[in-house]
Design a protein around this nucleic acid. Structure first.
Length: 277
DNA sequence: GACAGCAATAAATAGCGTGG
DNA sequence: CCACGCTATTTATTGCTGTC
């Protein structure tokens, strides 16, 4: 099973895409993507769920959508979606772009899931809300948004060292949300008319408050095999069983290559690199 | 000199705390 | 009890810093 997370930006920034497997490994990332790139990814990787960080529709005439007011009751702030008339400003261009993505993926079989739909589908997600419900609290005071969200990803089995911008971190949170929803962990907030934000929990807390500031080194619930194979191990182990021997033989081979390189440098009377002279 | 990433700022709205 | 200020969410823009 694979899921595609889409973080929506305006014309200039474009879309950020992150494709994730159900083992929470990031299969592919793409920044500054356009609608045509989304279609390419759908065709090539066939994700089951597309999770989009954007409203699929304007509000029905009020100041905000019901899903956003429900999030406010949980203590989770949102940037409210305006009505169609109020949304006609350049500032809301990114929401228009997001709605266009919903339309686009629907044309490729990913119909909007506002509750209970299974199989191939699209959902609306909110990375901030996802990070809140997965960590059990809002962003701790004094902690940077990006640090907090990356920590939440790592604590849930996603490695973050390939994510270059906050937008990619958010796209990864969107994809992670979809993976968990596919596993049956979901809460639907909202209604069909204005849209439904999906949270990756069976049941949310009554109210979320800023969490405690974690220590700098306590987010390693697991680590990756030191041989670079990207499989997970539980500390204090460093290697998947048997991979220590594999790693040692690889280092031996590199030493042999280095010796051959030194011999050739000497033969040609060329200098060694400055940092090893 | 190019380029990437980060910090600060504005925009619309809701909730919370405080002052009068 | 109401008004006001503060905080929090988002993207886009600008200016600064660091790296190569």
């Amino acid at each position: 099973m694979r899921a595609l997370g889409v973080d929506v930006g305006g014309d200039r920034k474009g879309l950020d895409l992150v494709l994730m497997g159900d083992d929470r490994a990031i299969v592919m990332t793409q920044g500054r993507a356009g609608p045509e790139d989304v279609v390419l990814v759908l065709g090539r990787y066939r994700p089951q769920i597309v999770a989009i960080d954007s409203p699929p529709a304007w509000n029905a005439g009020g100041r905000s959508r019901r899903t956003e007011r429900l999030l406010a009751e949980l203590g989770i702030s949102t940037f409210p979606t305006p009505s169609k008339a109020a949304g006609d400003k350049p500032f809301f261009g990114w929401m228009k772009a997001g709605m266009a993505v919903f339309t686009l993926v629907a044309e490729h079989g990913y119909t909007l899931d506002t509750g209970g739909r299974t199989g191939r589908r699209a959902i609306e997600v909110f990375p901030y809300a996802t990070a809140a419900v997965l960590s059990g609290g809002l962003k701790p005071h004094g902690m940077r948004t990006r640090d907090w969200r990356e920590r939440v990803l790592r604590a849930n089995g996603v490695r973050t060292d390939g994510l270059r911008t906050l937008d990619q971190v958010d796209a990864a949170l969107a994809a992670l949300t979809a993976v968990m929803v596919a596993e049956g962990r979901h809460t639907y907030l909202g209604d069909d008319a204005e849209g439904v934000i999906v949270l990756p929990v069976a049941a949310p807390l009554l109210r979320y408050r800023p969490g405690p500031r974690p220590a700098d080194d306590d987010d390693r619930l697991f680590r990756y095999c030191a041989c670079g194979c990207e499989r997970q191990v539980v500390p204090p182990r460093e290697f998947v069983r048997g991979h220590d021997g594999r790693h040692r033989s690889m280092l031996w081979e590199r030493v042999r290559q280095g010796r051959r390189a030194e011999e050739e440098l000497g033969r040609r009377r060329w200098e060694r690199p400055p940092e090893v002279r």
